[in-house]
Protein backbone atom coordinates (compact mmCIF):
# COMPACT_ATOMS: atom_id res chain seq x y z
CA UNK A 1 0.00 0.00 0.00
CA UNK A 2 1.47 3.32 -1.01
CA UNK A 3 0.75 6.12 1.39
CA UNK A 4 0.71 9.60 -0.08
CA UNK A 5 1.26 12.40 2.44
CA UNK A 6 -0.54 10.84 5.34
CA UNK A 7 -1.98 13.26 7.85
CA UNK A 8 -1.22 13.27 11.54
CA UNK A 9 -1.28 15.20 14.78
CA UNK A 10 1.61 16.94 16.50
CA UNK A 11 1.02 17.14 20.25
CA UNK A 12 3.23 19.66 22.01
CA UNK A 13 3.24 18.82 25.71
CA UNK A 14 5.01 22.12 26.54
CA UNK A 15 1.88 23.96 25.41
CA UNK A 16 -0.70 21.67 27.03
CA UNK A 17 -2.68 23.33 29.82
CA UNK A 18 -4.22 20.09 30.98
CA UNK A 19 -7.70 21.63 30.61
CA UNK A 20 -9.18 18.44 29.21
CA UNK A 21 -11.27 20.09 26.49
CA UNK A 22 -9.89 17.57 23.96
CA UNK A 23 -11.24 14.75 26.13
CA UNK A 24 -14.64 16.44 26.46
CA UNK A 25 -14.86 17.01 22.71
CA UNK A 26 -13.99 13.38 22.02
CA UNK A 27 -16.50 12.05 24.52
CA UNK A 28 -19.26 14.34 23.27
CA UNK A 29 -18.57 13.30 19.68
CA UNK A 30 -19.03 9.66 20.68
CA UNK A 31 -22.31 10.34 22.47
CA UNK A 32 -21.06 10.26 26.03
CA UNK A 33 -21.27 12.69 28.91
CA UNK A 34 -18.38 15.19 28.68
CA UNK A 35 -16.95 14.21 32.08
CA UNK A 36 -14.26 11.53 31.62
CA UNK A 37 -14.04 8.50 33.84
CA UNK A 38 -11.85 8.97 36.92
CA UNK A 39 -8.26 7.76 36.67
CA UNK A 40 -7.55 9.32 33.29
CA UNK A 41 -6.76 6.05 31.56
CA UNK A 42 -7.83 5.04 28.11
CA UNK A 43 -10.99 2.96 28.41
CA UNK A 44 -13.88 1.61 26.40
CA UNK A 45 -15.44 5.08 26.66
CA UNK A 46 -12.32 7.29 26.68
CA UNK A 47 -10.45 7.26 23.38
CA UNK A 48 -8.18 9.98 24.64
CA UNK A 49 -7.30 11.18 28.13
CA UNK A 50 -5.06 13.72 29.81
CA UNK A 51 -2.80 11.73 32.09
CA UNK A 52 -1.92 13.78 35.20
CA UNK A 53 0.39 11.27 36.84
CA UNK A 54 3.58 12.94 35.70
CA UNK A 55 5.30 16.31 35.97
CA UNK A 56 3.37 17.43 32.89
CA UNK A 57 -0.19 16.69 31.78
CA UNK A 58 0.17 14.14 28.95
CA UNK A 59 -2.34 13.36 26.20
CA UNK A 60 -2.82 9.69 25.51
CA UNK A 61 -4.39 8.42 22.31
CA UNK A 62 -3.82 5.99 19.46
CA UNK A 63 -0.47 6.73 17.79
CA UNK A 64 -1.76 5.74 14.34
CA UNK A 65 1.42 3.87 13.40
CA UNK A 66 2.55 4.03 9.78
CA UNK A 67 2.73 0.23 9.75
CA UNK A 68 0.47 -0.75 12.65
CA UNK A 69 1.00 -3.99 14.55
CA UNK A 70 -2.75 -4.16 15.27
CA UNK A 71 -3.67 -4.06 11.58
CA UNK A 72 -1.09 -6.72 10.69
CA UNK A 73 -2.33 -8.88 13.57
CA UNK A 74 -6.01 -8.76 12.63
CA UNK A 75 -7.01 -11.99 10.81
CA UNK A 76 -9.92 -10.34 9.01
CA UNK A 77 -8.53 -6.84 8.35
CA UNK A 78 -11.09 -5.26 10.68
CA UNK A 79 -8.29 -2.83 11.55
CA UNK A 80 -6.49 -1.11 8.72
CA UNK A 81 -4.27 1.85 8.02
CA UNK A 82 -5.92 4.28 5.61
CA UNK A 83 -3.91 6.24 3.08
CA UNK A 84 -5.03 9.47 4.76
CA UNK A 85 -3.38 8.47 8.03
CA UNK A 86 -6.01 7.12 10.44
CA UNK A 87 -5.95 3.50 11.61
CA UNK A 88 -9.64 2.58 11.50
CA UNK A 89 -11.71 -0.30 12.89
CA UNK A 90 -14.68 -2.02 11.29
CA UNK A 91 -16.61 -3.86 14.01
CA UNK A 92 -18.72 -5.77 11.48
CA UNK A 93 -15.67 -7.77 10.36
CA UNK A 94 -14.28 -8.33 13.87
CA UNK A 95 -14.02 -11.84 15.37
CA UNK A 96 -13.15 -10.57 18.82
CA UNK A 97 -9.82 -12.43 19.02
CA UNK A 98 -8.16 -9.42 20.73
CA UNK A 99 -4.83 -10.06 19.04
CA UNK A 100 -4.81 -6.29 18.34
CA UNK A 101 -4.79 -5.53 22.07
CA UNK A 102 -2.06 -8.10 22.53
CA UNK A 103 -0.01 -6.67 19.65
CA UNK A 104 -0.19 -2.90 20.19
CA UNK A 105 3.20 -1.63 21.40
CA UNK A 106 1.50 1.41 22.97
CA UNK A 107 -1.28 -0.55 24.73
CA UNK A 108 -3.96 1.59 23.13
CA UNK A 109 -6.91 -0.59 22.01
CA UNK A 110 -9.56 -1.22 24.62
CA UNK A 111 -12.24 -3.88 24.73
CA UNK A 112 -15.88 -3.80 25.79
CA UNK A 113 -15.54 -6.58 28.33
CA UNK A 114 -19.03 -6.02 29.73
CA UNK A 115 -20.86 -6.18 26.40
CA UNK A 116 -22.46 -9.32 24.95
CA UNK A 117 -21.56 -7.99 21.47
CA UNK A 118 -18.22 -6.35 22.22
CA UNK A 119 -16.16 -4.04 20.04
CA UNK A 120 -12.59 -2.87 20.09
CA UNK A 121 -12.48 0.80 21.08
CA UNK A 122 -9.76 3.18 20.04
CA UNK A 123 -9.26 6.62 18.49
CA UNK A 124 -9.83 6.67 14.73
CA UNK A 125 -8.37 10.16 14.25
CA UNK A 126 -11.90 11.26 13.38
CA UNK A 127 -11.53 9.62 9.97
CA UNK A 128 -15.11 10.60 9.01
CA UNK A 129 -14.53 14.25 9.84
CA UNK A 130 -11.25 14.22 7.91
CA UNK A 131 -12.96 12.74 4.87
CA UNK A 132 -15.46 15.62 5.04
CA UNK A 133 -12.59 18.11 5.13
CA UNK A 134 -12.75 18.75 8.87
CA UNK A 135 -10.32 18.48 11.75
CA UNK A 136 -10.15 15.85 14.49
CA UNK A 137 -12.47 16.94 17.29
CA UNK A 138 -9.68 17.06 19.87
CA UNK A 139 -7.50 19.29 17.71
CA UNK A 140 -10.40 21.64 17.05
CA UNK A 141 -11.20 21.86 20.76
CA UNK A 142 -7.68 22.66 21.97
CA UNK A 143 -7.52 26.28 23.18
CA UNK A 144 -3.72 26.33 23.45
CA UNK A 145 -2.74 24.97 20.01
CA UNK A 146 -1.07 22.10 21.81
CA UNK A 147 -2.38 19.78 19.09
CA UNK A 148 -1.79 20.58 15.45
CA UNK A 149 -3.20 18.66 12.51
CA UNK A 150 -1.53 18.38 9.11
CA UNK A 151 0.56 16.26 6.74
CA UNK A 152 3.07 14.27 8.74
CA UNK A 153 6.13 15.62 6.92
CA UNK A 154 5.07 19.19 7.62
CA UNK A 155 4.46 18.35 11.26
CA UNK A 156 7.95 16.89 11.52
CA UNK A 157 9.44 20.06 9.98
CA UNK A 158 7.41 22.16 12.41
CA UNK A 159 8.52 20.04 15.37
CA UNK A 160 12.18 20.38 14.34
CA UNK A 161 11.76 24.12 14.01
CA UNK A 162 10.30 24.43 17.51
CA UNK A 163 13.13 22.40 19.03
CA UNK A 164 15.75 24.44 17.14
CA UNK A 165 14.14 27.78 18.10
CA UNK A 166 13.89 26.99 21.79
CA UNK A 167 16.26 24.18 22.75
CA UNK A 168 16.00 24.98 26.47
CA UNK A 169 12.23 24.38 26.64
CA UNK A 170 12.23 21.23 24.51
CA UNK A 171 13.61 17.76 24.95
CA UNK A 172 15.44 17.19 21.65
CA UNK A 173 13.54 14.08 20.62
CA UNK A 174 10.36 13.87 18.53
CA UNK A 175 8.43 10.86 19.82
CA UNK A 176 6.85 8.91 16.99
CA UNK A 177 9.42 9.84 14.39
CA UNK A 178 11.05 6.43 14.41
CA UNK A 179 9.21 4.33 16.99
CA UNK A 180 8.08 1.06 15.38
CA UNK A 181 8.73 2.56 11.95
CA UNK A 182 7.09 5.91 12.72
CA UNK A 183 3.64 7.02 13.81
CA UNK A 184 1.16 9.57 12.49
CA UNK A 185 0.79 11.08 15.96
CA UNK A 186 3.95 12.85 17.10
CA UNK A 187 4.86 14.22 20.52
CA UNK A 188 7.11 17.05 21.70
CA UNK A 189 7.97 17.25 25.37
CA UNK A 190 9.84 19.50 27.81
CA UNK A 191 11.28 16.44 29.57
CA UNK A 192 12.47 13.05 28.42
CA UNK A 193 9.71 10.72 27.26
CA UNK A 194 10.80 8.10 29.73
CA UNK A 195 9.77 10.48 32.53
CA UNK A 196 6.30 10.68 31.03
CA UNK A 197 5.76 6.96 30.90
CA UNK A 198 6.14 6.52 27.13
CA UNK A 199 7.62 3.19 26.02
CA UNK A 200 11.12 4.26 24.99
CA UNK A 201 12.77 0.96 24.16
CA UNK A 202 10.77 0.28 21.01
CA UNK A 203 12.59 -0.87 17.88
CA UNK A 204 12.72 1.52 14.92
CA UNK A 205 11.55 -1.14 12.46
CA UNK A 206 7.82 -1.83 12.10
CA UNK A 207 6.72 -4.73 14.30
CA UNK A 208 4.88 -6.47 11.42
CA UNK A 209 8.32 -7.10 9.87
CA UNK A 210 8.86 -9.66 12.62
CA UNK A 211 5.82 -11.76 11.84
CA UNK A 212 6.40 -11.27 8.10
CA UNK A 213 9.60 -13.30 8.51
CA UNK A 214 7.51 -16.22 9.77
CA UNK A 215 4.76 -15.86 7.18
CA UNK A 216 7.21 -15.58 4.28
CA UNK A 217 8.52 -19.03 5.20
CA UNK A 218 5.13 -20.65 4.57
CA UNK A 219 5.57 -21.39 0.83
CA UNK A 220 9.08 -22.74 1.46
CA UNK A 221 7.93 -25.00 4.28
CA UNK A 222 5.06 -26.32 2.17
CA UNK A 223 7.26 -26.90 -0.90
CA UNK A 224 10.31 -28.38 0.76
CA UNK A 225 8.15 -30.22 3.30
CA UNK A 226 5.99 -31.86 0.64
CA UNK A 227 9.08 -32.90 -1.33
CA UNK A 228 10.85 -34.24 1.75
CA UNK A 229 7.81 -36.18 2.97
CA UNK A 230 7.18 -37.67 -0.47
CA UNK A 231 10.79 -38.71 -0.72
CA UNK A 232 10.66 -40.34 2.73
CA UNK A 233 7.45 -42.09 1.81
CA UNK A 234 8.88 -43.44 -1.44
CA UNK A 235 12.23 -44.52 -0.02
CA UNK A 236 10.88 -46.26 3.07
CA UNK A 237 8.16 -47.93 1.01
CA UNK A 238 10.73 -49.16 -1.48
CA UNK A 239 12.89 -50.47 1.34
CA UNK A 240 9.91 -52.32 2.75
CA UNK A 241 9.13 -53.88 -0.63
CA UNK A 242 12.73 -54.96 -1.12
CA UNK A 243 12.80 -56.49 2.34
CA UNK A 244 9.60 -58.37 1.59
CA UNK A 245 10.89 -59.63 -1.76
CA UNK A 246 14.13 -60.87 -0.27
CA UNK A 247 12.25 -62.77 2.35
CA UNK A 248 13.05 -63.00 6.03
CA UNK A 249 16.77 -62.38 6.31
CA UNK A 250 18.71 -62.69 9.52
CA UNK A 251 16.87 -61.04 12.34
CA UNK A 252 17.73 -57.36 12.76
CA UNK A 253 20.49 -56.78 15.24
CA UNK A 254 19.82 -54.56 18.17
CA UNK A 255 22.53 -52.30 19.42
CA UNK A 256 21.56 -52.63 23.03
CA UNK A 257 19.01 -55.16 24.07
CA UNK A 258 16.39 -53.66 26.34
CA UNK A 259 15.86 -55.46 29.62
CA UNK A 260 13.05 -57.99 29.77
CA UNK A 261 9.55 -56.75 29.50
CA UNK A 262 7.77 -55.62 32.57
CA UNK A 263 4.33 -54.23 32.90
CA UNK A 264 3.34 -51.35 35.05
CA UNK A 265 2.02 -53.57 37.75
CA UNK A 266 5.13 -55.55 38.45
CA UNK A 267 7.07 -52.62 39.73
CA UNK A 268 5.14 -52.58 42.95
CA UNK A 269 6.90 -55.77 43.90
CA UNK A 270 10.33 -54.29 43.23
CA UNK A 271 9.85 -51.08 45.12
Amino acid sequence: MKIIRPQGILIDITRCLGCGQCVEACRTLHGQSPEPEPGARLSASDRTVVDERYSQPVRRMCMHCLDPACASACPVAALRKTAAGPVVYDASRCLGCRYCLQACPFDVPRYEWDQPVPSVVKCDLCADRLAAGGLPACVEACPAEAAQFGPRDELIAEARRRIADDPTSYHPRIYGLEEVGGTSVLFLSPVSFEELGFPTGLPSEPLPDRTAVAIERVPGIVGVGALFLSAVWWITKRREEVARAEGPAEPPRRRRPDPPETTGNEEEHHV
Binding site: C74, R93, C94, A212, I215
Partner: peptide, 17 residues
Protein backbone atom coordinates in the same frame (compact mmCIF):
# COMPACT_ATOMS: atom_id res chain seq x y z
CA UNK B 1 -15.85 -11.78 21.45
CA UNK B 2 -17.95 -12.35 18.33
CA UNK B 3 -17.77 -16.07 17.63
CA UNK B 4 -20.60 -15.92 15.11
CA UNK B 5 -18.00 -14.29 12.83
CA UNK B 6 -15.72 -17.31 13.13
CA UNK B 7 -16.06 -18.00 9.40
CA UNK B 8 -14.92 -14.49 8.40
CA UNK B 9 -11.28 -15.46 7.71
CA UNK B 10 -12.60 -17.63 4.86
CA UNK B 11 -13.77 -14.59 2.92
CA UNK B 12 -12.13 -11.60 4.63
CA UNK B 13 -8.44 -12.05 4.05
CA UNK B 14 -5.43 -10.53 5.70
CA UNK B 15 -2.47 -12.63 4.55
CA UNK B 16 -0.07 -10.57 6.69
CA UNK B 17 -1.73 -11.86 9.84
Amino acid sequence: GRPWNLWHPLVMWNPRS
